Amino acid sequence: AAKLPRIYFVNWFRKDSTGRYVWPGFGDNSRVLKWIFERLAGRAPAQETPIGRVPTAGSLDLSGLSLSAAELDLLLTVDATVWAEEAALIPPAYEAFGERLPQELWRQHKALEGRLQAAHAAEMVAE
């Protein structure tokens, strides 16, 4: 497991309630790359989410940016409902591979769905 590659997913295109992109732009992507490298070196904290680990609010270098706390929260929040919709799109793609698709991918998908369902249930209780 120590030799497996680390995989990172980033969504630069989160929008606020007015439809404005929250992340300042591609020139600031190096801030997330910095967090990734620090994470790989064991120096950057992360928070657990249903889809994996994301940066904590204090672990990204945001110096010089004018992101509000609400905007940063939006960038770092995982919406379980939206992700469940995305996860539902995976099986048709997997099915195209038939028996050639490693069963581990199906297991990971099922586990993802379980984590998303649990997170959605927790959100409902919190409301």
Results as ranks from 00 to 15, higher is better:
Pro55Asp: 07
Leu89Met: 11
Ala70Cys: 01
Leu105Cys: 02
Met124Val: 15
Ser59Val: 15
Leu74Asn: 02
Phe37Pro: 00
Ser66Ile: 10
Pro5Gln: 07
Ile51Ala: 13
Thr81Lys: 13
Leu116His: 02
Asn11His: 13
Glu123Thr: 04
Pro50Gln: 13
Gly114Gln: 14
Asn29Ile: 01
Ser68Trp: 02
Arg100Glu: 08
Glu71Lys: 03
Leu4Phe: 06
Pro102Asn: 08
Ala84Leu: 15
Ala93Cys: 07
Leu74Phe: 02
Pro55Cys: 12
Asp61Cys: 09
Arg115Ile: 02
Leu75Tyr: 04
Lys110Arg: 15
Asp73Met: 01
Gln108Cys: 04
Pro92Glu: 07
Glu86Val: 15
Ala1Leu: 12
Leu75His: 04
Leu74Trp: 03
Arg100Trp: 08
Asn29Cys: 00
Ser59Trp: 05
Ala2Met: 07
Trp23Val: 00
Pro102Thr: 06
Pro50Tyr: 09
Thr49Val: 10
Leu105Arg: 14
Ala41Arg: 13
Pro55Asn: 10
Ile51Pro: 00
Leu65Trp: 02
Arg43Gly: 01
Ser17Gly: 07
Leu33Met: 10
Thr49His: 05
Gly52Phe: 10
Ala119Gln: 06
Val82Met: 11
Gly114Asn: 11
Asn11Gly: 06
Lys34Met: 05
Gly27Leu: 12
Ile7Ser: 04
Leu67Ala: 08
Gly19Ala: 14
Arg115Trp: 01
Gly25Cys: 11
Gln108Lys: 13
Arg53Ala: 13
Gln103Ser: 13
Pro92Ala: 08
Tyr21Pro: 00
Lys15Ser: 05
Arg53Lys: 12
Leu75Cys: 11
Ile36Thr: 07
Arg39His: 14
Tyr94Gly: 03
Phe26Ile: 04
Ser30Arg: 10
Glu95Lys: 13
Leu112Ser: 01
Lys15Val: 15
Ala93Arg: 13
Tyr94Glu: 01
Val54Ile: 07
Trp83Ser: 05
Lys34Tyr: 02
Arg31Met: 07
Ala46Phe: 03
Ala87Val: 15
Arg43His: 09
Ala122Ile: 11
Glu104Thr: 10
Thr49Gln: 06
Met124Glu: 12
Gln47Thr: 09
Glu99Asp: 11
Pro50Met: 13
Leu40Met: 14
Gln117Tyr: 04
Arg100Ser: 10
Glu86Ile: 15
Pro24Ile: 14
Arg20Thr: 14
Val32Asn: 04
Gly42Ala: 07
Glu86His: 12
Trp23Cys: 02
Leu116Arg: 04
Thr77Ile: 03
Ile7Pro: 00
Thr49Phe: 02
Phe13Val: 01
Ala70Ser: 09
Leu89Pro: 00
Leu112Cys: 05
Glu113Ser: 09
Ala88Tyr: 06
Leu75Lys: 07
Ala119Gly: 01
Met124Arg: 14
Ala126Glu: 05
Leu33Arg: 08
Pro55Trp: 04
Glu99Thr: 14
Ser59Gly: 10
Asp61Glu: 09
Gly25Leu: 13
Leu75Gln: 07
Thr18His: 06
Pro5Asn: 06
Gly58Ser: 09
Ala96Lys: 14
Leu112Tyr: 01
Val32Ala: 09
Phe26Ser: 08
Leu89Trp: 04
Gly42Thr: 06
Ala70Gln: 09
Tyr21Leu: 14
Gly27Ile: 11
Lys110Ile: 01
Pro91Leu: 15
Thr81Gln: 12
Ser17His: 06
Lys3Thr: 11
